[in-house]
């Protein structure tokens, strides 16, 4: 146990000193990888710990990103208020979708989340929401300055943004770690193992699933908000089904139910698809190919491969 804690702080220390070795471009890629890891970890909370295979996480990712951008662009709010607005938006969407989704499980849950996700994109691109989303056209914005003591820090600087993202990711990781190791986390795992039995023991299964769903939505929303602040624009791609699929892929490839696996999967996938797509194939295609190959080679995820080796 203490070995893991040591490993965690060692990883954080490496991430803190890493910028010295990176170019500004690599810095922004590193920040993006951390954000995608956070997004995948939010999915892991749902799938790896509560057993809910959601393909709809992009809804909350998008809500977080759009909410933050909206508060900055239209309401002219400061960074903390805008971030809070994005998170509230993500949680509200998670509550609305979750209200229906937690009533079903297994394949029904999967289909339901996909359906909600695709229809959200349909609505946003249809023009009903033109005042907010502008369809496929991007809405650029300038992130507000972060007030830190006497200083005002601009997130446009890649280094500042890197540390900004790192801080959120570390805090989120610790929070998730705390959640999954708390009594609440035990209930989540009980539901994952046997929904019926948890119900019979006396837990209100739907309520706990909804809690997990909203928590997952909140962290997804945070990831979306951080990405919006990093890229300095939002567009409809924040909501696309492919994003939800990527979170699933990274988590399962990295190793579900481990939290760390999500980050590992995101790192390995983004670096390798980046490498593959420099050989003329495009990114989604290489993700698809990698997925089909990886599930055949390492169905228990990378963490599973490492642990299996250690055991054997």
């Amino acid at each position: 146990m203490s070995g893991r804690i040591l490993a965690f702080w060692a990883a954080v220390a490496v991430l803190v000193v890493l910028p010295r070795a990176l170019t500004p471009y690599q810095l922004s890629v590193a920040a993006e990888i951390m954000i995608w890891g956070l997004f995948a970890m939010a999915f892991d909370l749902l799938y790896g710990y509560t057993g809910m295979l959601s393909f709809g996480q992009a809804i909350f990712f998008g809500a977080g990103g759009y909410g933050t951008a909206f508060a900055v662009l239209r309401l002219d709010w400061g960074i903390w208020e805008a971030l809070a607005f994005g998170l509230v938006a993500a949680a509200a969407f998670a509550l609305a979708v979750g209200f229906f989704a937690v009533r079903v499980s297994g394949h029904y849950f999967l289909i339901l989340t996909i359906t909600f996700s695709v229809i959200t994109v349909l609505v946003l691109q249809s023009g009903h929401w033109r005042w907010l989303s502008r369809g496929y056209a991007a809405s650029p914005f300038t992130p507000p300055l972060v007030p830190l003591g006497p200083w005002r820090i601009s997130l446009i600087d890649p280094l500042a943004n890197y540390y900004w993202v790192l801080a959120f990711v570390v805090v989120s990781f610790l929070l998730c770690w705390r959640i999954v190791n708390s009594p609440l986390g035990k209930v989540f795992r009980g539901i994952r193992e046997n929904e019926e039995r948890s119900r019979l023991i006396g837990y209100h299964v739907e309520r706990f699933k909804l809690i997990a769903f909203v928590l997952g939505g909140l962290f997804s929303g945070l990831a979306g908000a951080l990405l919006a602040l990093t890229l300095r624009y939002v567009d409809i791609s924040y909501f696309e089904l492919t994003l939800s699929g990527k979170a699933v892929a990274w988590t399962v490839i990295g190793g579900a139910g481990t939290l760390v696996g999500a980050f590992l999967g995101a790192l390995v996938f983004i670096v390798s698809t980046d490498y593959l797509s420099s050989w003329t194939i495009n990114v989604p295609l290489s993700i698809g190919l990698l997925l089909v190959v990886m599930v055949a080679v390492a169905p228990d995820g990378l963490i599973g491969v490492v642990r299996g080796k250690r055991r054997g």
Partner: peptide, 17 residues
Amino acid sequence: IITIIATFGLSLIFQQA
């Protein structure tokens, strides 16, 4: 679960192809 993920990978491949 793995099968579902594989079919998602296939859908990406077909779309991009």
